[in-house]
Design a protein around this nucleic acid. Structure first.
Length: 418
DNA sequence: TCTGGGGTCCTAGGACCC
DNA sequence: TCTGGGGTCCTAGGACCC
């Protein structure tokens, strides 16, 4: 939906309407954990009891990542603290997430969808768009939707909602209607009855801050946004106002992006188990974060033009500094050195709760002539990275570390990459 | 033991140039 | 001799999504 690709219709004259499905896994992390547990012989299906997937509270990662339908009945919301969830439902059961498993379930789902079309956009780990415009044959879009939903349930053991529409925005809005295990359509003529009646906050891209401003304009429903003057919205919200007005009116021309896109930035951050004051300690963590970001950057065969670091103080104030580099880099050493410099200019003896690093302005390795700037010194570090990367790929990310990095990695709980 | 992590995109303001 | 304005690049911060 934020896609700027322009598609010219080669069938000149008649304007072919797109046939789009949006597949959304119901309570993905919780459902997938439930499937894993049943598979391991556990008797209770945690989808049927008040349960949540949450982070580790002792490491200050205590937020709700997913909830069961019974948990939802207690008013528990994704993103709130586990502490708050317990207040709403003292007998709530909390389970840890397992990203390796989630990735596997996501891939299994994708494999089924691939049998229908290769025009699939993996919008997140648990959401896909499918463009079936040229792949329907004699069948109807809604029949396909039911078939796909049923196959996923029977073959993979979890349920999805499927949105059926003529563009991505409406398909996504449709899949968000009544859950779970449902197919919903949202065609143009259905917009007033099915979408305009919903609260404004249900519209994609309308968040908390926008709601506050919209309320001052007397907006309560999506229909209210649709009927507002477009120019007024643009005046109040800039480009975002145009997007909101178009979405409220069901307008979205973006294409399903089915080819793997290169990342635009890569980041890694960590909320620390305890606040840290000592800059040397922070530097140690920065090295581990640099290594992880560098590893991913090199895996994509890319280089970074900007290094950014961010800290959050114990008062939840966020500060960031970034630096544009004269040359593009991807060695752990280059990333770390710049990050370290930035931290020195940013650090002010305030207790640090979170620290993060991000590389930005990424380009492909081929796009840059490296040899001109390559010194013997740099070659040494590049070779070291290559060796480390290969070992990590072979034996697992955390099995191979630089001196001093190990204990930090254990603390950071850095996820292994695919 | 209250408040995660990884992304994308946009905006405002300052520096600098002509 | 008291103050213009367009343009580009860069940085910090923030909104929104899953």
């Amino acid at each position: 939906m934020t896609n700027k690709n322009i598609c010219f219709n080669i069938y000149s004259g008649e304007d072919m309407e797109k046939q789009i499905l949006h597949i959304d896994v119901n309570n993905a992390f919780l459902s997938w954990t439930a499937v894993d547990r049943l598979h391991n012989g556990e008797k209770i299906d945690i989808r049927t009891i008040p349960a949540i997937i949450g982070g580790d509270e002792s490491n200050r990662h205590g937020v709700v990542l997913a909830k069961s339908m019974p948990a939802k009945q207690f008013g528990i919301k994704t993103g709130e603290t586990i502490y708050q969830a317990r207040k709403k439902c003292p007998e709530i059961q909390v389970f840890m997430g397992n990203y390796d498993s989630y990735r596997k379930h996501s891939n299994d789902l994708y494999q089924i969808l691939l049998e229908y079309t290769e025009k699939i956009e993996r919008f997140s780990i648990d959401e896909c768009f499918m463009d079936l415009t040229l792949f329907l044959g004699k069948d109807t879009l809604i029949n396909k939707a039911y078939e796909i939903k049923q196959r996923i349930k029977e073959e993979l053991g979890f349920t999805v909602n499927v949105g059926v529409a003529n563009n991505k925005l409406l398909a996504k809005m449709a899949s968000d209607f009544e859950k779970p295990d449902k197919v919903h359509t949202l065609y143009k003529k259905e917009i007033p009855s099915k979408m305009w009646t919903l609260p404004a906050s249900d519209l994609f891209m309308v968040g908390k801050k926008s709601i506050v401003k919209l309320e001052t304009l007397g907006v309560k429903t999506i229909g209210d946004i649709a009927k507002l003057n477009k120019e007024l919205l643009i005046k109040k919200f800039g480009k975002h106002g145009k997007v909101m007005w178009e979405y409220a009116n069901g307008i979205d021309e973006s294409e399903v992006i089915y080819e793997q896109e290169k990342p635009k930035c890569i980041g890694n951050s960590i909320t620390l188990p305890q606040d840290i004051y000592n800059i040397n300690k922070l530097n140690e963590i920065l090295l581990a974060l640099s290594e992880q970001v560098g590893f991913r950057l090199r895996k994509h065969k890319m280089l970074a033009g900007v290094i950014n670091i961010q800290i959050k103080t114990n008062e939840f104030k966020v500060y960031s500094h970034q630096k544009k580099l004269d040359i593009y880099v991807n060695t752990t050493k280059d990333i770390y050195c710049t990050a370290k410099e930035l931290l020195e200019t940013l650090h002010s003896n305030k207790p640090v709760r979170l620290i993060g690093i991000k590389v930005d302005k990424l380009i492909d390795e081929e796009e840059v002539q490296m040899s001109l700037f390559n010194t013997k010194e740099n070659e040494k570090y590049e070779k070291l990275d290559r060796v480390m990367d290969e070992l990590k790929k072979k034996y697992g990310y955390n099995k191979v570390t630089r001196a001093g990095e190990m204990k930090v990695n254990n603390m950071l709980n850095i996820r292994e990459e695919k």
